[in-house]
Structures are given as structure tokens and as C-alpha cells.
Design a protein around this nucleic acid. Structure first.
Lengths: 116, 116
DNA sequence: TCGATATTTCAAGGATTATTGAAACATGGA
DNA sequence: TCCATGTTTCAATAATCCTTGAAATATCGA
């Protein structure tokens, strides 16, 4: 994840509808979710969801595939981890002792469940 | 870090000048850097730097103190770690096996140095 | 108090981003 | 082929964000 891509990704995450879309896709896993279903779940018009999904795609955070009439979106886990690493490097750069403790909190444990 | 604050923080990080400012402040540590010095280092006008610093402050990512005529900014490490955790929870929610490996890469090691 | 320094605030303008609804495109089934 | 379905694209408007320079505020030293 280079800086240019990180800037775009941060912008993508700074909008409520997009954050909700990404959460749904992360939880859905590789199976993904069709655009129409996403529009229903976030209660936003199809064209507006399409706009936001394109922004997430530009940020590299989601990818698409066609399945019959539907277009199925799925989260790009590598991009998300890349973004986390980008943030960690900025946070820890030169001062690992300060942010490391906060990261020691339990995370990435199976069964932890999602934030609502 | 709640969702509302995370949205603001992502927005704050999605702008190049602000990301540069934050990096400088992270590297500077608790000593912080005065506004004027920051303006010089990022080569932006004082009033523009002030605008961006206020945005970082609104996001909770920096704090200020007055030192004589200067106003000294410093990074809020807790907010930064909180944002990282927010992202990790979204990323790993329900699917820890997917993003955990990426986070196992070496980070937070003393002497790792900053990204340029 | 006065002037110099350090920074912020404000208003105006330009640039980008978000929302909306209509139209276009692609797919699959009758 | 024709129609229904699922999705995107487009144009227009609204909203938000960024930049700029001038004016205001606060501090310090003479």
C-alpha cells in the first residue's frame, strides 16, 4: 500500500454509507454480496450505492465479479490489512514504545464478532 | 474510538498535507512541534497549516499547548492506536483468519524507522 | 505602551464530493 | 425477439472541503 493509495482509502472510509458497505462485505467474506442486496441493506438508492461502491473499488478495498444478472462485490482483505499496516508504520515510526501497548489488546480472535 | 470519531479521523487522514503533518508530529513525540515550524517543514502557508491542524485536532489526532508565543502541536498516540484498532475490528470481524497473517508482519520494532 | 513575532480567524472563491432521477446497458428467460 | 431484472452512467444540483490573503488575537521584550 503506497501513500497515494492510502490517501484514497482513507477518503473512502470517511463516509458513513461506504463504511457500512465495507463492513457488510467484510462480514460476508469471499462469497460477497450483490449490489442490489447491498442497496437494500444500507437503505440507499441503487445509483447512489453504485457511486459509493465505485469509490471503494477505486480505493482497492473491494472487487467485483458478475454473477448472472447481478454484480457481486467482495472485500479485498489484503488492501485492508495493507492500510492497517500503513497506519501502524506511521504510528510507530521511531516511537514503537508508545503505540505498541494499545495494539496488544485482544483482536483478531475467532468469535470476537463485529462492531455494530 | 466510536464510529463517528473514526469517520472524522479517516477524513482527516485523507489529505496529503494533513498526513505529512501527522507524520512529523508522530516522529517528534511528546515534545511536539510549533505551528510555524510545521508550516515551514511542509511548505504551506501559516493560515493553511492552521486550517489543517484544526481538522486533525477535531479528529482527536493531535493536541495543542501554548509555549510562549508558539502553539505547540503533538500527536495523540492513543487516538491513533484507537483508529488502528477500529480498523482491525472491522477487518477481522467474523473473519480473523483472513487479515491476521498480514498483521503478523514485523511492525512496532524499535529502530524500524519511518516511511518516507 | 509600543512594536515585533506567532498564530488564528474570517470571508471569498474555487475545487471536489454527494445525491437524485432519468436514461442506458447487460443478462436471462418466455 | 421481446420483456423484465439488475446495475451503471450521466447530467444537474446541493453540499462539503480547500486555498488564499487580509485582519484579528495573543505574547514577549524594549
Amino acid at each position: 500500500m503506497d501513500e497515494r493509495q492510502a490517501l484514497i482509502a482513507f477518503g473512502a472510509l470517511s463516509q458513513e454509507t461506504r463504511l457500512r458497505l465495507l463492513r457488510l462485505l467484510v462480514m460476508a467474506g469471499p462469497a460477497g454480496i450483490a449490489a442490489g442486496s447491498l442497496a437494500e441493506q444500507v437503505a440507499v438508492s441503487p445509483s447512489n450505492v453504485s457511486f459509493h461502491l465505485k469509490e471503494l473499488e477505486r480505493a482497492g478495498l473491494v472487487s467485483t465479479r458478475r454473477d448472472a444478472r447481478s454484480i457481486v462485490y467482495s472485500a479485498e482483505y489484503d488492501a485492508l490489512s495493507g492500510l492497517i499496516r500503513f497506519l501502524m508504520e506511521d504510528c510507530c515510526s521511531g516511537r514503537p514504545e508508545i503505540c505498541a501497548p494499545a495494539l496488544a489488546a485482544p483482536c483478531c480472535q475467532p468469535g470476537e464478532g463485529a462492531r455494530q
